[in-house]
Amino acid sequence: MLIDLNHIFKIYQAGHVEVPALINITLQINKGEFVAIIGQSGSGKTTLLDIIGCLSRPTNGEYWLDGDLVNTLPDSRLTGIRNKKIGFIFQTFHLLPRKTALENVQLPLMYAGASRTVQHDIAQTLLTKVGLQDRLRHYSNQLSGGQQQRVAIARALANSPALLLADEPTGNLDSQSGKDILALFEQLHRHGQTIVMITHDPLIAQQAERRVTLADGRVVADEYMHQSLPVPG
């Protein structure tokens, strides 16, 4: 089992008001699964994915990731986990401005301590894999949204993470770019990549292998679908 969430709570403090964003979430995800998380806006999807990705800590509960009880680990260990085990893809890409595609993809490798030649080679391979072999030295602002998201995917894959997390990766893209990104995910999944993806698009969710529905901070449905995403073509 890759992810094991037990009675997870997340309560935000907005001034004097406590906002419970996640209430008693218990959820297991195995290696190799492709899980879609759906739910209304404000239902806690991003909050949940942040916790899974070690970008924030639960207020309460136990989170086991690949055998580690991560909610008790010190920041320094969490950093290593984020670097090596998790690849995160954001709705707004979060590429560093004024850096080239290559430089953006190299960053996780740099923090992993790879040599500069290794950084360069891996980044180039990954960018080729996402179809950007002729955009290596383009700056973030010289790329289309779809291309930026592909750079972000290459960056997420840089250290071959066990877990790929995506928070509405197609939310800011036109439908064709969205489809291309999804095809990329499907391809990764077929090669055994574990993926957890938040989506608003019911069609995409329909086609997922497993669908977890949140409402008001709780899991209200956890369904295994019969077929995986069709290969687009």
């Binding site: 970008l55 920041d75 950093t79 290593g80 670097n83 560093l96 960056r155």
Partner: peptide, 12 residues
């Protein structure tokens, strides 16, 4: 930028 760098594995 700092948030992103930390998210992809930068230590403090």
């Amino acid at each position: 930028e700092i948030g992103l760098r930390k998210a992809i594995g930068a230590r403090r």
